[in-house]
Amino acid sequence: MIIKGKVWKYGDDINTDVIYPGRYTYQLLSPEEMASHSMEDLDKEFVKKVGKGDIIAAGKNFGMGSSREQAAKCLKYSGITAIIAKSFSRIYFRNAINAGLLAITLPEHVGKIEEGDIIEINLEERKIKTPKGEFEIPQFPKEVIEILNDGGLIEHTKKIIRDGG
């Protein structure tokens, strides 16, 4: 999997409520509707400026707070393909991977990635190429790689069910 995209930068402790507000959490919305509320209480410009294949770079504890899965899915439906952060809230990390949205923890180097940078993520080689150099992606557990390779938890599980496991 090789991803190349433009970076949007956010700070520390970006929480699920500002990524996807509670007022929409208990409504069944389409992917397009979910995408339209992305980052609504944090950055009103986000949905206008984000493009397909873009990447988010952020500080510590990205996605803290609620278990709401739409906070990961809405970004994926907005076009985001990967989030690189200093650290992730644990439920958010799982929700992102399960949605097929790459979540990379890069505590030492994420600060060197700037807004507007075009960066390239090569998952097989575990490398991120940025204008400020090339950084190594930490090894994911095999469970995570399998889910990512199958395009998310649902497709992964369907495959397991089909294979009789």
Binding site: S67, G152, T157
Partner: peptide
């Protein structure tokens, strides 16, 4: 522990979840 909606759906179907 808290989990996501997709994970809950998978447990409903298969009974299983992986955890660290």
């Amino acid at each position: 522990a808290g989990i996501g909606r997709s994970e809950a759906a998978v447990i409903w179907a298969t009974g299983k979840i992986w955890l660290k």
